[in-house]
Deep mutational scan, measured.
Amino acid sequence: MATVKFKYKGEEKEVDISKIKKVWRVGKMISFTWDEGGGKTGRGAVSEKDAPKELLQMLEKQ
């Protein structure tokens, strides 16, 4: 499965696309949330040019 790689608060992170729940556009950035388990929700953002095609497809479906 595809993953999204991004930096959050200076830390490199990687999230499996299948865990992503919500995707939206903020200017030229793609923001998203995912389920971290245990009732926690993670947040992240990646530039439109660095976003994997699967993430962009999720954005178009909404």
Rank of each mutant, 00 (worst) to 15 (best):
M1S: 13
M1G: 11
M1R: 04
M1C: 14
A2E: 05
A2C: 14
A2M: 08
A2L: 06
T3I: 11
T3K: 10
T3Q: 03
V4P: 01
V4I: 08
V4Y: 01
V4K: 00
V4N: 00
V4S: 00
V4R: 00
K5N: 02
K5W: 02
K5L: 02
K5R: 15
F6A: 02
F6T: 03
K7T: 10
K7H: 07
K7W: 09
K7L: 11
K7R: 13
Y8F: 04
Y8V: 05
Y8A: 02
Y8S: 03
K9W: 05
K9F: 09
K9A: 04
K9M: 12
G10R: 01
G10H: 03
G10M: 02
G10Y: 02
G10P: 00
G10S: 03
E11V: 13
E11P: 00
E11H: 07
E11K: 11
E12S: 07
E12A: 06
E12L: 13
E12V: 14
E12C: 13
E12R: 03
K13A: 03
K13P: 00
K13F: 08
K13E: 02
K13W: 05
K13Y: 12
E14Y: 04
V15E: 02
V15P: 00
V15Q: 02
V15N: 00
V15M: 05
V15S: 01
D16V: 12
D16Y: 09
D16S: 11
D16C: 08
I17A: 03
I17C: 06
I17E: 02
I17D: 01
S18G: 13
S18D: 13
S18E: 06
K19R: 07
I20R: 00
I20C: 05
I20M: 13
I20F: 08
K21P: 03
K21L: 14
K21H: 14
K21F: 15
K21Y: 15
K22T: 14
V23P: 02
V23S: 04
V23N: 01
V23K: 01
W24N: 02
W24M: 08
W24K: 03
R25F: 10
V26F: 07
V26R: 12
V26H: 08
V26Q: 06
G27H: 10
K28G: 14
K28C: 15
K28L: 08
K28T: 07
K28V: 08
K28F: 08
K28W: 08
K28H: 05
M29P: 02
M29H: 13
M29V: 13
M29N: 09
M29I: 08
I30C: 06
I30W: 03
I30A: 02
I30R: 00
S31Q: 08
S31N: 08
S31M: 07
S31W: 07
S31K: 08
F32V: 04
F32P: 00
F32Q: 00
T33Y: 07
T33V: 10
T33R: 15
W34V: 02
W34E: 00
W34S: 01
D35F: 06
D35P: 12
D35A: 09
D35I: 11
D35K: 05
E36V: 14
E36T: 11
E36F: 13
G37M: 10
G37E: 11
G38E: 08
G38Q: 09
G39S: 14
G39N: 12
G39K: 05
K40Y: 15
K40S: 11
K40P: 10
K40L: 12
T41I: 13
T41E: 15
G42T: 05
G42A: 11
G42H: 07
G42S: 08
R43Q: 12
R43L: 14
R43N: 14
G44P: 00
G44S: 08
G44K: 02
A45V: 14
A45I: 05
A45D: 15
A45S: 10
V46I: 10
V46S: 03
V46L: 05
V46E: 01
V46Q: 03
S47G: 14
S47H: 14
S47P: 13
S47E: 15
S47W: 05
E48G: 05
E48W: 05
E48K: 09
E48V: 07
E48P: 10
K49R: 07
K49T: 09
K49H: 04
K49V: 11
K49C: 15
D50I: 09
D50M: 09
D50F: 08
A51L: 04
A51C: 14
A51H: 02
P52R: 02
P52S: 03
P52L: 04
P52M: 03
K53M: 12
E54K: 04
E54F: 05
E54V: 08
E54H: 06
E54S: 07
E54M: 07
L55N: 00
L55F: 05
L55D: 00
L56R: 09
L56M: 15
Q57I: 10
Q57P: 04
Q57G: 07
Q57L: 06
M58A: 11
M58I: 11
M58T: 04
M58H: 05
M58F: 04
M58C: 14
L59N: 03
L59H: 05
L59G: 03
L59F: 05
L59V: 10
L59E: 11
E60T: 11
E60N: 14
K61W: 09
K61H: 14
K61L: 14
K61A: 13
Q62N: 10
Q62A: 15
Q62P: 13
Q62V: 06
Q62W: 04
